[in-house]
Amino acid sequence: MENAIQIPLLTLLFSAAISENVALYYFLGICPLISISADLKASFNMGLTVSLVMLITTAANWAIYHLLLQPMELEYLQLLFFVLIIAATVQLLELFLDRFFPSIYEVFGIFLPLITVNCAILGVSMFAVLREYSLIQSLVFAAGSGMGWCLVICIIASVRRRINIDAVPVHLGKTGITMLIAAVIALAFSGVSELMSGGF
């Protein structure tokens, strides 16, 4: 509005990726974090897909919000429009990959419908609008969030790979141990976040 927030893009990128990590700080996109992280390669692919979808949908949603909803004073419909945009983007991406990159499609394919209900994607779009980021800032924010999410899922997957051979308490199961890993990582990230937000 009067004075658009001036945040250095690099700060935005890193705070979105690390200190205000979308998965561990906002609790968004936890389900795939737990269910996909069994395999490092799949996790990385999932992370990349999420980042890509996040980037596309944030841009599209930014445009919808600023060019259609705000001038028409229909802000209360933002949820509807955002979600439909995400669903359509995911479907288009699925078709596109199927046609041009079948090898990628076979790896990603099953994850794509899951992404529609990945709250991280909707969350990032909503945050970008809420915080009045410009288009460039939104894109940087989306890229940072996507990277951050990808980072977390890869860390969890690598830790899980290491403890694969260890005897995990039977009753804890895969979900439980992943939760504990996530807890430890979240603690570590909150430390980093404290550091970055001027703990000195």
């Binding site: 359509a88 479907q91 288009l92 078709l95 596109f96 199927d98 046609r99 041009f100």
Partner: peptide, 11 residues
């Protein structure tokens, strides 16, 4: 958009 890209992109 979905339908036409489906047609367009179909192998």
């Amino acid at each position: 958009l979905v339908a036409f890209s489906g047609q367009l992109l179909r192998q």
